[in-house]
């Protein structure tokens, strides 16, 4: 039996070894520029492929659009 994580306040199934990149792929986020925080800690883009997400984690995915 696997647990869950929360991604932008929605519950999602968790599995052992799950990475930030796995979550983005499963959620099919199409925005190019994202800021990811796992349990409040920012995970830099170059770490997404191997940053493990623990069971029960609170993941926030924030979109960045150009313009200023």
């Amino acid at each position: 039996m696997s647990g869950t994580i929360t991604v932008n306040r929605e519950t999602m199934e968790w599995r052992p070894g799950m990475t930030v990149a796995d979550i983005l792929e499963e959620r099919r986020y199409t925005f190019k520029m994202l800021v990811i925080r796992v349990n409040g800690t920012l995970i830099k883009k170059d770490r997404w492929p191997d940053a493990a997400v623990p069971e029960g984690a609170d993941v926030q995915v924030l979109h960045l659009m150009s313009g200023g």
């Binding site: 520029m33 800021v35 800690t41 920012l42 979109h63 960045l64 659009m65 150009s66 313009g67």
Partner: peptide, 28 residues
């Protein structure tokens, strides 16, 4: 102006200073 630059700036600041606020803009 550019999202790519917003991203590295936010990432860098939050990593250097996790407690210090950064106030960004996206979608204006």
């Amino acid at each position: 102006d550019r999202a790519e630059e917003k991203q590295w700036l936010i990432e860098t600041w939050c990593t250097l200073f996790p407690e210090k606020p950064v106030i960004a803009a996206s979608g204006l």
